[in-house]
Design a protein around this nucleic acid. Structure first.
Length: 546
RNA sequence: GGGGCCGUCGGCUAGUGGGAGGCUGCCGGGUUCGGGUCCCGGUGACCGGGGUUCGAAUCCCCGCGGCCCCA
């Protein structure tokens, strides 16, 4: 089983043999996730939930079914998804769908919940399953019809806040992807023709699998006010008048360089309009209050004196700004595919279902009890801090167990035999890429502190390996010839591009590659488009993809 | 959306019109145990439905499922 030569075969074999999935369940694209595999996926999702909760997101649950009228509300959204939803019949009527993503069902309720700016921001997440009717070939964890994932949905008062949330989502995912799981990846702004249906723009994290294909492991969407308008998610905003003193209020327009100041009296309001540049009063006046709300009178004065444009937010009944972002179990596929080797899985320490396995070794029955007792002691001393498993099966030889647990990607193995008991030590073996485990003799007395150190070493080791791998996967090319050669060598490329959709389509037809998009800070290109030879606009990422 | 290939014990596979066999796993026993011990015995399958035929795992049709290629 060669990972480099035939990745697809390797992947299929590993996920079955390592007890990740059993795909014999007879529905296309719906395999069973076995405990070992499910624990990996859950471990990742729990880490993510923890990170979200640190940022004051709250968990929430919505139903799995969406009435089709609600689903259809945002026109671009439904266009993007209508062909790939599962219908649920009510009687013989197609009225319900299995959610393919939760924007519509959530935002239907958001419109009921949000009334005031004080209700904002809303930051909810949901770990759930979504359903997409895939007709093409499916692949466990990578493309299925049932997707386990975590989606977060926020609503904000201003565009700026929403933008900040986009940035925050990237920070959160960066922690999960790189710091915790050591998956190298790049953040890419998707081209307009490839954004999420209903979004203003989409930013996605892409990694590259060993077969040279991009795999999207996380996405974050600026939804703008598209869903807000479709679902009427409006709120009464804070008035723009700032109280500067007793009975004195001010409003400022930086665009117009103008400030207006109100002084509230018993039955009237005096106002002064300043030119901020010249710091002089342009004009002033007085208005009768007539028992009206002072802020309504402020509005009247502003409109009359300065026009509706003075404060763009004078209409205080506004649509929210929204973002949504998600990470699916696809990410677990990246962890398996990128770290694994020809001996099976290699798992990041923090998400490994079993972090340390203890293998007792003995030659004759007289040693057996002693070794097992010693092994149990070591097990007890480690189990509060780590997920440890004592493999005391007697029908398997130590050599068999070594290979078995290495296949499953257990980071550390502790070998305990008669020699170790004598010397009050253990042998710790660390999972290594494509070679036998690295063995380290550890004194029993400082086993806990040594393992702590070894965890750091292990983490650093898989990060270095992954980084090396990833750096070789992305190649900068300037010509079509080089692009073609790179693709044939199972790489993805960064190339100058004209940014025309038609050009991207032709590239897809000819080389079956996709234009994935630009860097977050798009890198301007000076030369010619790698395909059509017209002047290039930006360097973009191009490659085959899942 | 279009095309191709495929489906045999739990897994891998041989058999292409007339005996369903091997390896592995699993169960029992013995032997081994610091890198997948070895031996003996047992267990276990033709994806579902229809058709052709004296006779079908094998040929034909439909369905379900898998893999690959093209748009």
């Amino acid at each position: 089983m060669q990972k480099e030569n035939n990745f697809s075969e390797w992947y299929n074999e590993v996920i079955r043999k390592a007890d990740i999935i059993d795909d014999r369940y007879p529905i296309k694209g719906m395999p069973v996730y076995k405990p070992y595999g499910y624990k990996i996926v859950l471990g990742i999702l729990r880490m993510l939930e923890g990170l979200l909760e640190e940022e004051e997101f709250e968990p929430i649950w919505f139903p799995i079914l969406i009435p089709c009228e609600i689903f259809s509300k945002e026109s671009k959204h439904i266009k993007g998804f209508e062909e790939e939803v599962f219908w649920v019949l009510e009687g013989d009527q197609k009225r319900l769908i299995l959610r393919p993503t939760s924007e519509t069902e959530m935002y239907y309720m958001y419109s009921l919940w949000i009334q005031s700016y004080q209700d904002l921001p809303i930051k909810y997440f949901m770990t759930n399953t979504v359903y997409r009717y895939e007709t093409k070939a499916t692949k466990p964890l990578i493309r299925g019809r049932e997707i386990l994932w975590n989606e977060a949905h926020t609503a904000h008062r201003t565009k700026e806040e929403a933008k900040k949330m986009i940035k925050k989502s990237i920070d959160i995912y960066l922690k999960l992807f790189w710091e915790i799981c050591s998956i190298p990846h790049i953040w890419i702004i998707r081209p307009q023709w490839d954004k999420f249906a209903g979004a203003d723009y989409t930013i996605a994290a892409d990694t590259v699998l060993p077969d040279g294909r991009f795999l999207q492991i996380g996405t974050t969407h600026m939804l703008g006010q598209n869903f807000a308008k479709a679902f009427e998610i409006k709120f009464m905003d804070k008035h723009p008048y700032i109280k500067v003193d007793d009975c004195v209020y001010e409003a400022v327009s930086k665009d117009m360089n103008i400030k207006i100041r109100f002084k509230v009296q018993d039955s009237s309001i005096e106002y002064e309009i300043f030119d901020l540049e010249k710091s002089s009063i342009i004009r002033n006046g007085e208005y009768r209050l007539d028992n009206k709300d002072i802020f309504m009178v402020f509005d009247e004065i502003v409109v009359k004196e300065l026009g509706k444009n003075f404060l763009e937010n004078l209409d205080r009944y506004k649509y929210v700004w929204q973002t949504s972002f998600g990470v699916s179990m696809r990410f677990a596929a990246a962890v398996i595919a990128i770290h694994g080797d020809n001996k099976g899985l290699i798992l990041p320490f923090s998400i490994a279902p079993i972090q340390i396995v203890i293998v007792p070794i003995y030659y004759e029955n007289s040693q057996r009890d002693l070794v097992l007792e010693y092994s149990r002691k070591v097990y007890e001393s480690l189990k509060t801090e780590y997920r440890v498993y004592l493999d005391d099966r007697e029908d398997k030889t130590p050599g068999w167990k070594f290979n078995y647990w290495e296949f499953k990607g257990v980071p550390f193995r502790i070998e305990i035999g008669p020699r170790d008991i004598e010397k009050k030590r253990v042998v710790v073996a660390m999972r290594q890429r494509d070679s036998k485990a690295k063995k380290i003799v550890v004194e029993l007395d400082n086993i806990n502190s040594t393992i702590k150190q070894l965890v750091d070493d292990y983490d650093k080791y898989i990060k270095e390996e992954a980084k090396k791998y990833f750096e070789e996967k992305i190649i900068r090319v300037g010509s079509y010839k080089d692009l073609k050669r790179a693709i044939s060598k199972l790489k993805v490329v960064k190339a100058p591009f004209c940014m025309e959709e038609g050009c991207a389509r032709k590239l897809k037809e000819e080389l079956h590659v996709e234009v994935r998009g630009t860097d977050l800070e798009p890198e301007e290109a000076e030369g010619r488009c790698v395909y059509c030879n017209k002047p290039a606009k930006y360097w973009v990422y191009i490659g085959k993809s899942y």
